[in-house]
């Protein structure tokens, strides 16, 4: 690992000021950053430790929503009684990711900013426009079984690895940010992440030095929430495809639905096409299949990952069938 200097921030405003120096990066749980530093993929020369900032609380909001501090552990968030009862899809998504040890360390803010697990991003001998802009994409034409089927570009076909962010997308979460100039803003999670385009190394709309301070969940929409993850192992594995759904159904008719896919794109993929195909329609497999076809209309395989298109459709159908089953 390359050498770096270290400082611990005890106050958020001081943290964003401290990270302004060249080569500086925030470290929180460190479970992804330190892994990437060991592999020489991330090369910060200075670390600002924000793990002890007073941003660990999960708070009720006046409108019935919830604000999750960016330094809250993944495990604490998944185990929070309010999250479990009002936002079970978030708890389910968090619990489907990583291991017990990692969830105890990994923060909510860090989970949002974790990097792709594309093997070519990890292989410093391979071309990767995300790791080394302009060096090409070895995944295109390479072993691309785990790669994107939606929203990819000629520069990058990597996927975003987070489960949590997929659930947050279905919950219409907002990301709360503190800028280096001390200003605060909120960004809808769908606007927070970027598609790769020509600049796959720019993954979010975060400004230099800007810090995630929390995630705001609006009051939960009515209906059932469900996260379904399909992967190569039963546990401790990233998604091939996942679906987060929030669906209301009454007497066999779907009211409203919110649908997001994981493992299919450079960002958690909200499918307004699927949602439109579900609203007001009978809660039947024919409807779910039509929604799945709508969701994957623009999907494109890369060879090894062609199976993901049908897998995503079936995963959506299965999730919707379970979510609308009469209890």
């Amino acid at each position: 690992m390359r050498s770096f200097t270290y400082e611990r921030a005890i106050e958020a405003r001081a943290a964003v000021a401290a990270v302004s120096r060249p080569g500086a990066k925030f470290i929180s749980g460190g479970t992804n950053l330190l892994d990437l530093m060991k592999l020489d993929i991330e090369q910060p020369s200075h670390l600002v430790d924000i793990s002890r900032l007073p941003l660990r609380d999960i708070e009720e909001l006046p409108d019935g929503g919830l604000r999750i501090g960016a330094q809250a552990a993944n495990s604490d968030t998944a185990a929070d009684a309010r999250v479990r009862v009002r936002y079970p899809v978030l708890s389910q998504a968090l619990l489907s990711g990583a291991s017990g040890q990692l969830r105890n360390k990994a923060s909510i803010g860090g989970n949002l900013l974790q990097r792709t697990r594309c093997p070519y991003f990890y292989d410093t001998a391979a071309g990767c426009n995300k790791r080394d802009p302009g060096s090409g994409c070895s995944a295109i034409g390479g072993f691309n079984r785990i790669h994107a089927i939606l929203g990819a570009s000629d520069a990058c076909i990597a996927t975003h690895p987070s489960d949590m962010a997929v659930a947050m997308t279905a919950l219409e979460a907002e990301i709360e940010l503190l800028d280096a100039d001390q200003s605060v803003r909120r960004v809808a999670i769908t606007d927070f992440y970027r598609l790769p385009g020509d600049t796959p190394h720019v993954e979010t709309v975060l400004r230099p030095g800007e810090m995630i301070t929390g995630v705001v969940l609006p009051p939960p929409a009515s209906g059932r929430q469900l996260y379904r993850k399909v992967r190569d192992r039963a546990s401790y594995e990233f998604a091939l495809v996942s679906v987060a759904a929030v669906v209301s159904a009454d007497q066999g008719t779907i009211g409203a639905a919110r649908v997001a896919f994981g493992g299919v794109a450079h960002k958690p993929w909200r499918s307004v096409e699927a949602e439109a195909a579900l609203a007001g329609r009978p809660a039947t497999m024919a409807t779910y299949r039509a929604a799945a076809e709508a969701a994957m209309r623009d999907a494109r395989g890369q060879g090894h990952n062609d199976f993901k298109i049908e897998l995503a459709k079936r995963t959506l159908c299965r999730t919707l069938a379970q979510a609308t089953r009469a209890s």
């Binding site: 611990r8 470290i27 479970t31 060991k38």
Partner: peptide, 27 residues
């Protein structure tokens, strides 16, 4: 593995299990 994948380095920090390979002593 030294990369948080195997769990051999698990210790308890403030009563919680974590991978000691993926955190810094100074933290």
């Amino acid at each position: 593995c030294d990369h948080g994948q195997c769990g051999a380095c698990t210790v308890l920090i403030n009563g919680r299990r974590v991978n000691s390979c993926l955190t810094l002593a100074v933290m």
